[in-house]
Structures are given as structure tokens and as C-alpha cells.
Design a protein around this nucleic acid. Sequence first.
DNA 1: ATATATTGATAACCGATGCGCATGAATTTC
DNA 2: GAAATTCATGCGCATCGGTTATCAATATAT
Lengths: 300, 300
Amino acid sequence: MRMNFTPQQLTAFLHLARSGSFGEAARRHGVSQPALSRTIQQMEAALGRRLFDRTTRSVVPTPTGLELRRIAETLVAEFDSAADDLARFVEGRSGRVAVAALPSIAAVLLAPAIARFRERHPEVEVAVLDGLSGPVLDAVAAGGADLGLTIRPPAQATLVYRPLLADEFGLVCRPEDAPAGEGPLPWSVFEGRPFVAMAPASSVRQMTDAAFLQAGLAVPPLYGCAFLGTVGPMVAAGLGLTALPRLTLPLLGSFGLVWRRLERPVMRRPMGVVTRAGRSPAPAVLAFLAELERQAKAMR
Amino acid sequence: MRMNFTPQQLTAFLHLARSGSFGEAARRHGVSQPALSRTIQQMEAALGRRLFDRTTRSVVPTPTGLELRRIAETLVAEFDSAADDLARFVEGRSGRVAVAALPSIAAVLLAPAIARFRERHPEVEVAVLDGLSGPVLDAVAAGGADLGLTIRPPAQATLVYRPLLADEFGLVCRPEDAPAGEGPLPWSVFEGRPFVAMAPASSVRQMTDAAFLQAGLAVPPLYGCAFLGTVGPMVAAGLGLTALPRLTLPLLGSFGLVWRRLERPVMRRPMGVVTRAGRSPAPAVLAFLAELERQAKAMR
DNA sequence: ATATATTGATAACCGATGCGCATGAATTTC
DNA sequence: GAAATTCATGCGCATCGGTTATCAATATAT
């Protein structure tokens, strides 16, 4: 005896068991009365037992009908709740988002995005793994993180990169060291002045080197700091000037440093998001991505 | 988003999630590979999300697929267990049987039937309501009892009666009071001897009265006892003889009384089972009925 | 490197199923 | 006794789920 009732059948049955009339039950179930008659007949045939003793005047559940009602009532409830769980997940209202990010991007882009996201998706768990570029990419590739926030990585078959924000480089210095005027400055502004550089492996250093190369300048790099948090105090102490993307400014510390846009060439630090190629992200991750893009657009 | 997956779809999905290959999963699910492909596509369309990221070489669940797997796994288990519960009920292996019965029938027919029944149906709860004819019929009519064991009641629209056993009347007396010989005796055997009668309302009394009337005898009834348990000691004390259906003999007590079949006329007490008309009994009740009939046949 | 085999997707077709409409049969009500 | 109510049935239709045959893509073998 293979009982293979569909949730449809079970709810139809429950409507009938609850209303005690085929016409009424059919209306509530949203089908015609003959359709409901057939449905019940099929269930009875499958079981080999009547579910209702019915005359033209009354519809009374048999003991088997009562038993099925007991069972179907909980089963349908389970089913509905499961459907609800799944719907919440599919709509991105439940689940988990793990984001790997460079600390600089985490500070300026990720933090506010999480704040907004959690307002709309309070049940979604958000995990942050801050690390340098390599570990970020590794985490995404290995599946430990759903997405990675970093600067554009070299093209890779297993990862996809999508740009979010291009952060422009500018001069960073104490107010009293700033050239007169208000507009953008050329990179030649660094000529003849001490330049506080980042460590040779860092993405910022590679871009400043490239800028000087393009501009045909020879500016000797000093110090070679690994962390932005170290650069701020050094500039503030008057040890030199530096060039940094605008959004990193808050990470330097509160020393009242000024930022002036640099051009010739205009340099932009491409920040974006990487995901695994060929892997569908969880709905909550997609929703978070959308929030990230909105945040990026707002900061542009 | 109305998720309305059938158990079929869910188990198909689980087969795929577990095997990681359409071909293998289709085989286990008992359908062709294209059929499974389409089933999964339909589920994905219903959800608006992919459930598996697949190439020709790999089938990997998406986050949504993992979530559905988690949900479907428990849901299908619930479903199976519910189906099992229902099957046990439908096959009469679980449930409850309430039997209303005359004490005399309960003793001779019901008790052994229950004993056998419980061997085969250990999970079925059996309740006994022993009472006189009126309350027995009332209990059945009101639904408090699934079936009633009693002597044939007057025809009633709401009840159906089915005969089980016809219990023959015989002379009951002390061995020393018995007429010589071994064969059946005529009712005239009571002429001129004290006859211990039952109460006028009892079914036995009505049949003994009828027997004397048919035989054209005038035998004055003495005492008019209401309970069989009272009749035994009285006969054993030598206060008189009586006529009783054979199967009631054990109820008289252990006084070594003898029973000799009576004829001219042969009187039979019709015992049977009553059920509600137009109401399907529970499967366990049907199984119990079958056991009752087997028991009756064995005693005939 | 080219051929082969494996695997999932697609196309075409077909029988079964579920539904609605119209109608029938039984019973209560006026 | 006629009308109304209620569940069951017959019939036609659209949909669905299934199979076979075939395609497209990729890994493997020669």
C-alpha cells in the first residue's frame, strides 16, 4: 500500500474534514465541487478505505478519516513551515554571508554596507574575515568566504571580479605643507620633497611607483611602511608627504591631514568584489552584493 | 513565491543531492535521466534559483540547494513516518477497538477473541464495556462503542445486526437430579419439578417462557434471578432445575452441574454483533470482527 | 592533437492526470 | 408531491510527467 499523497491532496482533504461539506470545502480549496469529489475518491482508492461516510445530506469522517486528519494536520503544518523557511532563505531574509575583505576596504565600504544590510535583513548572519589580498582571494576560492572585497586581482579562471569603486589618489600632508590653491595637483608636486612610501609589495606602492614612472619623475621612496595606520602619524610628524587613495584618509588617524586630488596621471585604485566563478551565490549574498553596490555608488 | 513541491519532487531532489550525478540519481529514483533533469529544472523555476551548479562534469549544490536539502531531508522523513503511521492504522495494526458486550457473551466469546486478537495486533488498544442489552445498544448507537455483542435486538434503522453464534438451551441440574441416559431431553422434563427461572425481563427468561408455551407445558417459574451467578448456587443447592444456553455454563460457578441438550422445541439464543448502520468501522475494528467470527465458528 | 566516451540538456512525442461544465441520483424541505 | 440541496458521474480539454532519440560540452585515451 503506497501512500503517496501530495500536499495538495492533503489540504483538500483537510478542507473537507474541517467544513463537512464538499461544496464549501471545494470553494475554500479553490476548485470545483466535482474536482474535490474526485480527489477524495482517489485518496480513498489509494488507501482502500473510505475517508468519509457520506449521504447527500451529511459528510462524516470515518475512523480512518479521523486518523488521516490527525496526521495530515501536523504534516501540512510541517510542510508549510518548511516552505516558509525555504522562502525566507530564497528571498535572502535568512542565511549567512561571509565576506573576506582588505582592512582598508572593510573600513570604508564594508562597515556601512553591513550596517544598512542588517537593518533590512536582521536574521542574516554576517561574518567578516579581514586580511591581505592573498588570503582574501584564497578564502573566496576555497569557499570559506562568499565574496571578497579587494583591489582588482590578476585574472583567474576560478574567480570573477566585478569593480565597485575606483578610489582616486591624492596628496596627503599637513595643512601647512600643502601647496597654495584649491585645485588638483600634478604628481610633480612631490619632486624635491620627502615622500613617505608604502612597503614595496603593497598595492598602493605599486600604483605610486607606476604614477612616478608615467610622469617621468624620480622621487625616492622613504620608510616603506606596511600599514596605513603607521603612515598617518609619520606624515603628521612632518617626516614627509605621501599619496593615497581618498577613502583611506580616515584610516590614517585624526591628525587633521589634508587631501588634494592628484592628476597627470590620474591614478585610481580599483576596488571590487570577487566571487567564485560558476558558483551561484546564496540569495542573502546577492542581496548583500546589491547593498555593496549601492554603498559604492553613494561614495562615488 | 508559492513553493508547492510534491514528495516525489523532494525525493528526486534528494537522490540527486546525495549522488551528485543525474544519471545515478535518476536510476535510484527509478526514472530516466531527462525526466530528472526536467524535475530539477521545474523546481528551480518554481524557486527562481538554481539548486545545483552543473557542468557536464560536475553537479554541485548551490547554497539554496544545500538549504533545501537540509529542509527536504527532515520533511521527507516526516512524510514517510506519517505514511507509515497511516498504513499501520489502515492495516488494522494500530488504533482502538471499543466493544460493548453482555457479560455472558463477554465471558465466553469476547475474552478468548481478545486474547487471540492481541497476539496479532499488539498495538491495538481494546476496551470492553460490559452491560445489559439496552446500554450495549445505546453505546453502539452513540458511537461510544465500535461494536456491540448481544443477543439479536429488534430491527433498528441506525444499527445493523449480524449473527455470530446460536447457543442451544439445555437442562442444568446436579448430576444426581439428571434423568437417566445420555441423549437430548424434551422440555417436558421440567413438568412437576421446581424450575429456577430468570428475571422476567431477561432474554433467557423470555426464551424459556416461549419454549414452555410452544411445548404446551405449564411450568411455574420460581425465584426470578437477575444474574446467572445467582442461579448456579441455587441449582447446586438442590432448589430446582433450570434451562440455560450451553455457553453460559461456566458462569454458573464451579459446582459440577451437568448440562443436557433440550429439544421439542430446540431453542437457540441468537448471539451476534451490532454496528452502526452506514458508518465505516475502523480497520482494527474490522480485523477484530473477523477474529470474533473465527472464534464463534470454532465454538459452534 | 584528434578521436572517443561520458554526462547533462533539449526535442519530439505520448499516455495519464486533473479540472471544469453539464448532468444525474438521492434526500430533505416546503 | 414539487422544489431545492448535495454528492456523484460522464465527457471534453489542457497540462504534465515520462520515454526515446539526439545534441553539446568536456574529460580521457591513443
